[in-house]
Simulated assay, not measured.
Amino acid sequence: MSTLSPNHSLISSQTKHSAIYTFPSTRRAGGGLYSAIRATSATEKSGIKIQRNPPESKLTELGVRQWPKWGCPPSKFPWTYEAKEICYILEGKVKVTPNGANESVEIGAGDLVVFPKGMSCTWNVSVAVDKHYNFE
């Protein structure tokens, strides 16, 4: 059974919910950019944290629009995260399959995503991707 949340995001009662981090635009002692944490509703699958359609206020707080951009056409390629990455998908659709996982994680336009440092995976881009990104 699925319901619409107050911000009209689709939330499935069968989806595991956990915390995704919001990150201040300033550095804090001991933890870098990602040290201040406030929990919001999000999903986590295979170590990848996803918040669908975060409010613009959150994107502004993070400084997302000032982050570098990256894009690619439909393609399939391996990737290893040398550092934790947080990204905001502007356009596109991707299935990310972590090495050793039985399932893919689908991400697309409007998703705020955190990939853990050290994750090796395969990106299968079905619709050209354009994203803002930031590495810790």
Rank of each mutant, 00 (worst) to 15 (best):
residue 114 V to T: 13
residue 6 P to N: 05
residue 26 T to V: 12
residue 33 L to R: 15
residue 86 I to Q: 14
residue 45 K to P: 00
residue 35 S to H: 10
residue 73 P to G: 12
residue 90 L to G: 02
residue 19 A to N: 11
residue 7 N to L: 11
residue 70 W to H: 04
residue 76 K to S: 15
residue 124 N to T: 13
residue 2 S to I: 10
residue 52 R to C: 04
residue 76 K to H: 08
residue 71 G to L: 08
residue 117 K to S: 07
residue 108 G to L: 02
residue 131 K to Y: 06
residue 67 W to Y: 00
residue 100 G to P: 03
residue 133 Y to H: 07
residue 90 L to K: 11
residue 127 V to A: 14
residue 6 P to H: 08
residue 10 L to W: 11
residue 66 Q to R: 10
residue 127 V to H: 06
residue 7 N to F: 02
residue 60 T to N: 05
residue 32 G to K: 07
residue 39 A to W: 12
residue 121 C to T: 04
residue 86 I to N: 13
residue 89 I to D: 03
residue 19 A to S: 15
residue 122 T to E: 08
residue 117 K to Q: 12
residue 1 M to P: 09
residue 85 E to G: 06
residue 3 T to W: 11
residue 106 E to C: 07
residue 44 E to M: 08
residue 90 L to Q: 12
residue 47 G to N: 07
residue 114 V to F: 10
residue 46 S to I: 01
residue 88 Y to R: 03
residue 12 S to L: 13
residue 14 Q to R: 09
residue 36 A to K: 12
residue 21 Y to M: 09
residue 90 L to D: 13
residue 134 N to I: 11
residue 55 P to Q: 04
residue 40 T to S: 14
residue 42 A to F: 04
residue 61 E to F: 06
residue 121 C to H: 07
residue 44 E to A: 04
residue 76 K to M: 14
residue 107 I to C: 06
residue 120 S to W: 04
residue 5 S to N: 11
residue 70 W to T: 01
residue 104 S to T: 07
residue 112 L to T: 02
residue 67 W to S: 00
residue 133 Y to V: 05
residue 71 G to R: 05
residue 76 K to C: 14
residue 24 P to A: 13
residue 85 E to K: 11
residue 128 A to K: 15
residue 81 Y to L: 13
residue 107 I to L: 07
residue 86 I to R: 14
residue 14 Q to S: 15
residue 63 G to Y: 00
residue 43 T to F: 03
residue 34 Y to A: 10
residue 17 H to V: 12
residue 91 E to C: 06
residue 24 P to V: 03
residue 114 V to L: 06
residue 100 G to V: 06
residue 94 V to W: 03
residue 74 P to Y: 08
residue 92 G to F: 02
residue 32 G to Q: 11
residue 15 T to G: 02
residue 76 K to N: 07
residue 24 P to N: 09
residue 111 D to M: 01
residue 44 E to H: 03
residue 87 C to Q: 04
residue 118 G to F: 00
residue 68 P to V: 03
residue 12 S to C: 06
residue 24 P to L: 08
residue 95 K to I: 09
residue 8 H to D: 10
residue 88 Y to E: 06
residue 13 S to W: 13
residue 100 G to I: 01
residue 27 R to A: 14
residue 116 P to I: 02
residue 69 K to P: 00
residue 98 P to F: 02
residue 84 K to W: 11
residue 21 Y to A: 15
residue 52 R to P: 00
residue 13 S to F: 14
residue 24 P to M: 06
residue 60 T to F: 03
residue 60 T to W: 00
residue 4 L to T: 08
residue 34 Y to E: 14
residue 34 Y to T: 12
residue 136 E to M: 08
residue 87 C to K: 03
residue 40 T to G: 08
residue 63 G to T: 00
residue 21 Y to V: 11
residue 118 G to M: 04
residue 129 V to N: 04
residue 106 E to N: 08
residue 126 S to Y: 03
residue 96 V to T: 11
residue 9 S to H: 09
residue 75 S to Q: 14
residue 91 E to W: 07
residue 94 V to Y: 05
residue 10 L to H: 05
residue 51 Q to C: 15
residue 5 S to I: 04
residue 4 L to Y: 07
residue 33 L to K: 14
residue 40 T to A: 12
residue 73 P to W: 00
residue 67 W to I: 02
residue 107 I to M: 12
residue 117 K to W: 01
residue 132 H to P: 02
residue 107 I to T: 09
residue 28 R to S: 14
residue 24 P to W: 05
residue 65 R to S: 10
residue 46 S to F: 01
residue 110 G to Y: 04
residue 52 R to Q: 07
residue 56 E to R: 14
